[in-house]
Computed example of a mutant assay.
Amino acid sequence: MNIPNILTLLRVVLIPVIVVVYYLPVGWSYMAAAGVFFIAGCTDMLDGYLARRWNQSTPFGAFLDPVADKLMVAVSLTLLVHEYASFWVTVPAMIIIGREIVISALREWMAELGKRTSVAVSYIGKIKTAAQMGAIFFLLATPAELKTLMGLVGYGFLYLAAVLTIWSMWQYLAAAWGDLMPSDDHD
Rank of each mutant, 00 (worst) to 15 (best):
I97N: 02
I18Q: 04
F37Q: 15
F138N: 07
A161M: 13
K128C: 03
A131L: 15
E100M: 00
L24K: 03
L180C: 15
G35Q: 03
G156V: 10
A141D: 10
M31S: 00
Y123A: 07
E108M: 06
D179T: 05
L164M: 10
M169Y: 06
D179Y: 14
A144N: 01
G154I: 04
T58C: 08
V17P: 04
F37E: 11
S76T: 05
D65W: 04
V91W: 01
V163M: 14
A111I: 09
V102H: 00
F60Q: 06
G35W: 03
A34I: 07
Y22H: 14
Y159D: 12
L149R: 06
A105H: 02
P16A: 13
F87C: 07
A111N: 10
A120Y: 13
W109A: 13
W28C: 04
I136S: 10
G125L: 01
L140F: 03
A32F: 12
I6G: 12
G151N: 15
H186C: 02
A131G: 11
I6Y: 12
V13H: 10
V67G: 05
G114Y: 00
E100D: 12
K126G: 08
R53G: 02
D47I: 02
V102R: 01
A105Y: 02
T165K: 01
D184L: 10
P25E: 08
L10H: 04
I18N: 01
P92L: 10
V36A: 10
K126T: 00
A85H: 05
A120P: 08
N2A: 05
L79D: 00
L64C: 03
V153T: 13
L50C: 11
M45Y: 12
L180Q: 15
L140E: 03
G125T: 04
I136E: 11
W167A: 12
Y49M: 15
F157E: 06
L139T: 03
S76I: 07
A33N: 05
N5C: 00
K70W: 02
D47R: 01
W54C: 00
P16I: 12
S57N: 10
L14R: 01
V26R: 03
P16D: 13
W88L: 08
K115F: 12
I15R: 08
L146G: 03
N5P: 00
G156N: 11
T142C: 06
L106Q: 04
Y172L: 09
G114V: 01
V121F: 04
R99K: 04
L152C: 05
L14A: 02
V75A: 05
D44S: 15
A135V: 07
I39D: 03
W109N: 12
A68R: 03
R11W: 05
N5I: 01
F157Y: 10
V13G: 11
V81S: 02
G154Y: 03
M150A: 02
L146T: 07
T43G: 11
I3N: 09
S76F: 07
S168Q: 06
S29N: 15
W109R: 14
A130L: 11
L139S: 01
W177M: 12
G41S: 13
A120E: 14
G98H: 03
G134V: 09
W177K: 14
P143E: 04
R116F: 14
V102I: 00
P92N: 09
E145S: 10
